[in-house]
């Protein structure tokens, strides 16, 4: 049975990784599970300098979901290389490093720094974090800026590049195409959805940041649709994510067009989920007489399926909004 998939030049032994920000730097989970059984380990977002993050409360549990505004707390490139890389480089599976910056130059600089580090599996560009004032989402919701970020990082590194897209757009198609055109090897779809919760007794938002990003099982149908839309519009592979709790959830993403999947919020409450997804996927393939996981990719049986409207093939968000 073949479980391996290609994310551009990057080969994964199976299609299951973890979502950036839900798995720390891998080492925290090393006592609970064998990380070498994953397709890849994806670490929390890194930028040039250490980041303190937002005030607390930073998360709030909502119905079938989790709202967060962590603020990309992290050790910065140097701290990451010093503290966490010695562990990660021992793994037999690739490490995907999620990177971000506040300017295009910073994105490129971080990419350049990791280009010089031996053993990195791929870089994932975080252009879609809703919880920081600068950087993050502004690049992911402006198609031209997105194109410039991807192009700058493409020039800065030969490492496989994965662009993690925001769900907070009218149509994901122009963004997916812009990333592809500028040399992204793969897409991650999706980041958290901008959201809010209010404590009715205090009348204050439940997050210190006021607003945050929604993740967990409640966003899964949104993510499935975005993966489906993007998969019909680009040739590069997609890592699907958003609310995966089980192999069944993961298979939905594959059928919608994802080549790989990432387990996110479930890592917070069920740390063995990614391994259970791999096991469950194999059982499903056996039950359906499948020998290659790639035979699931994009095989949703869509009644009256048509290709994406040609008019969506634009890089101007204003235009794509007008068309909706």
């Amino acid at each position: 049975m073949n479980l391996s998939v290609q994310l551009g030049p990057l080969r994964l032994q199976n299609p299951v990784t973890v979502a950036s920000g839900t798995f720390g730097y891998g080492v925290e989970y090393a006592r609970l599970l064998d990380l070498n059984q994953l397709g890849a380990v994806t670490v929390k977002g890194i930028c040039l300098r250490p980041v303190r993050g937002n005030p607390t409360p930073r998360t709030a549990e909502v119905t079938s979901g989790l709202l967060n505004a962590i603020g990309l707390q992290g050790p910065g490139v140097d701290g990451f290389i010093r503290q966490y890389w010695p562990f990660l480089r021992q793994l037999r599976v690739p490490t995907i490093i999620n990177i971000w910056g506040t300017t295009i130059e910073e994105y490129a600089e971080v990419a350049r720094r990791f280009d010089q580090l031996e053993g990195v599996g791929a870089l994932e560009l975080n252009v879609s974090c809703p919880n920081i004032k600068e950087g993050g989402a502004q690049f992911g919701t402006d198609c031209r800026l997105l194109a410039r970020v991807v192009a700058a990082c493409r020039k800065a590194t030969r490492l496989p590049l994965i662009t993690k897209l925001s769900p907070n757009v009218v149509s994901i198609v122009p963004y997916a195409r812009a990333a592809e055109q500028e040399g992204s090897d793969a897409l991650s779809i999706m980041n958290s959805y901008p959201a809010m919760a209010i404590d009715i007794e205090t009348r204050r938002p439940r997050l210190a940041n006021g607003v945050g990003g929604l993740t967990g099982p409640c966003i899964k149908p949104i993510a499935i649709k975005l993966v489906y839309d993007a998969a019909r519009a680009v040739r590069i592979p997609i890592i699907g994510m958003g609310g995966i709790q089980s192999a069944e959830d993961a298979i939905e993403f594959l059928l919608a067009g994802a080549t790989a999947v990432a387990v996110g919020t479930a890592n917070f409450y069920a740390p063995r989920t990614a391994l259970e997804v791999i096991e469950g996927l194999q059982r499903y393939m056996q039950r359906h007489g499948l020998t290659d996981v790639r035979d699931l990719i994009g095989r949703v049986d869509m009644p009256g399926a048509a290709g994406p409207a040609a008019s969506e093939n634009t890089c101007t968000p204003a235009e794509s909004r007008m068309q909706q």
């Binding site: 720390g24 993050g53 998360t59 967060n68 917070f268």
Partner: peptide, 15 residues
Amino acid sequence: EHMCCGMGVCLTCVV
């Protein structure tokens, strides 16, 4: 503190 993952990855319970 208000906690989420309990094992050091989500960064909810910071002080």
